[in-house]
Design a protein around this nucleic acid. Sequence first.
DNA 1: CATACGTTTTAACCTCGGTTAATGCGTGTT
DNA 2: AACACGCATTAACCGAGGTTAAAACGTATG
Lengths: 180, 180
Amino acid sequence: MSFYDFLQNEGIQIEKDIGEHIFRQGDVDTSLYFINSGLLKAYYLSDEGKESIKSFLSHKDIIGSLASAYLGEPCSFGLLCLQPTRLTKISFSALREYSHKDVSVANEVIDVLLQFSMKKEKREFEFLCLSAEQRFSLLVKNTPHLIEKITQNDLARYLGVTPVGLSRIKKRVYESDLLS
Amino acid sequence: MSFYDFLQNEGIQIEKDIGEHIFRQGDVDTSLYFINSGLLKAYYLSDEGKESIKSFLSHKDIIGSLASAYLGEPCSFGLLCLQPTRLTKISFSALREYSHKDVSVANEVIDVLLQFSMKKEKREFEFLCLSAEQRFSLLVKNTPHLIEKITQNDLARYLGVTPVGLSRIKKRVYESDLLS
DNA sequence: CATACGTTTTAACCTCGGTTAATGCGTGTT
DNA sequence: AACACGCATTAACCGAGGTTAAAACGTATG
């Protein structure tokens, strides 16, 4: 038994179109979602209406609200399709039950969580140690394909600046590129 | 068999004094450390000499470089004692071996990783969505005991501002508190 | 006591990014 | 073709925080 067998056996296939939500901020959703294809954004919405993007998700990513699945809290963020998306929905508690019975599934879950933790540590590092301009340049270097698929509004809200701010950053970066 | 049995049986007790390092940025260290007592800071040092503090660690926290333990990379941050500290050092790979043999240990590791992931997501949220002033106010509210133990220099580098900046933020916050 | 060292505050100046608003640029849609 | 709508850029103004340096505090240590 493996994690992917679990996905096959226990997962529910879901298809969503552009603009549709998987869940909304404030919902209780105790599922995890494995993305087969498409593109989504996980985003926070403040009381004042300011949107901030937590992450973009695509093929092979796994997403869900841990606080909701693990603690039963309402989701602190929403999950929205930017492209038509096929996902496999699984129950977090069912996965935990399997993990208690099956040591190899448990260890695959550990691997998933280790990958996830390292990803979050990397983002923490970027916010803590780098400027918005450095975060932008790094993103251009590391995931140029992603940048082509999303609007600059969304890219800005992912980097933690406004669209106006990102436009200025781009101008600075590309002008200094011309000199070198 | 439980995770704490593992700590007892396989762990090595370590004592360190103020100013001593557990490991330095750039080292390869494939251990995890359980903190019995004391206080540490995990911190990044940039090429230009700028320090940024990733986290403060104390009683019952677990720390280690995942990238180093899991992938064998050099540690991207260092770990330094701010108070005399007693730790239990365990081998990451030994823990992984135990997890492969013992389903209950594996599931405790899952719990540890879930807690860790939620902590990192919370910090991501704070950098992405909140101002330095809001992060400071939240820290005062949530962990007032920590603030008494560390210098304002370290607090600033944890919040992602300079000590000068934090001094201004404090002044603003306390002056607006007087009014209410 | 005197000195030295680290911490915190304050001040002056500057830079980056936020805000608002106007303009221009696609790309549908009717 | 005309219009509307969302996206991107630009400009003007503002504010938060960075930088540098000085001053005000401790609190060790000789």
